[in-house]
């Protein structure tokens, strides 16, 4: 059974895309076929972490939504960039990225609207079956827009990423409420960028009682992650770092 997982945060800067990329690599490394789709059409970014250059992107999610190609034609095999050496003759592991276009004209065209949001649903299902995916991770646009709501509605699991910050606190409540209205099946909170010295136990209780959803991980604010500045996969670069170990816990939960 394949699993569709949306990763969302109400505000930008929570580390959502880095988390998505690292989780996808860990899931692939565990011997799975994994896809990452960037539905953040307005401000795409996750491709950077996989070192996919805009000039190498011939077709993107936008092209599929406008009916110019099949969705699997916009998928790029980034297995080597994500997990290093792997056996190319075996079907697993594999990691595919479906980027959104960074062409300003393309972004503007989508912003003007006029595409059928149902097509995104069809594309997500087609992708899972065409690429025989075990996991599809959806990197969403922060805040609330149609792509985000559709991504949440189509998911089996939703990971809400937030920092221990009052603005994130309020915003996450909004997303959690919307997700419940959309009948999301399973919702988890991931607390990210927790400064050293913060009362973690208090924070955990506060968050779980506020949203009625379990906290899946509490990730420390990491100098190394910040220094990496999205120029690569943290989990690959620092396999024994405490942050990587926490990320592996999340992956393990998703694998179960």
């Amino acid at each position: 059974m394949s699993q569709i997982i949306s990763i969302h945060s109400f505000r930008g800067g929570t580390g959502k895309s880095n988390l998505t990329a690292n989780l996808s690599a860990l899931l692939a490394k565990a011997g799975n076929r994994v896809g990452v789709i960037d539905t953040d059409i307005q401000s795409p970014g996750v491709h950077v972490i996989f070192a996919l250059k805009p000039s190498d992107v011939k077709l993107a999610l936008n092209d599929y939504l406008w009916g110019r190609c099949r969705i699997e034609e916009a998928a790029y095999d980034v297995t080597a960039a994500a997990i290093g050496r792997f056996d190319e003759s075996a079907a697993r592991p594999r990691l595919f990225l479906i980027p959104s276009s960074v062409n300003t004209g393309e972004i503007a065209q989508i912003l003007r609207g006029g595409y059928d949001i149902g097509k995104l649903n069809d594309g997500i299902h087609e992708l899972v079956s065409a690429l025989d995916l075990d996991y599809l991770l959806i990197d969403t646009h922060p805040g609330v827009n149609e792509e985000t709501l559709l991504s949440i509605a189509v998911s089996d699991r939703l990971l809400l990423v937030m920092r221990p910050d009052s603005q994130d606190f309020q915003g996450t409540a909004i997303t959690a409420e919307l997700a419940r209205k959309l009948d999301v099946r399973e919702m988890f909170i991931i607390l990210n960028k927790i400064p050293a010295g913060m009362d973690r136990e208090f924070l955990l209780q506060q968050v779980e009682s506020a949203y009625g959803a379990p906290v899946l991980a509490m990730l420390p604010l990491s100098i190394e992650m910040a220094t990496l500045a999205s120029s690569g996969l943290f989990a690959l670069r620092f396999p024994d770092h405490p942050l990587t170990l926490e990320l592996m816990k999340i992956a393990k939960r998703l694998l179960s």
Partner: peptide, 18 residues
């Protein structure tokens, strides 16, 4: 209406009509 729209977009009926 936005919620209804999204629920419709992911309804199994969509696959059937496709």
């Amino acid at each position: 209406s936005l919620i209804t729209k999204m629920k419709s977009a992911v309804a199994p009926l969509r696959d059937i009509l496709n």
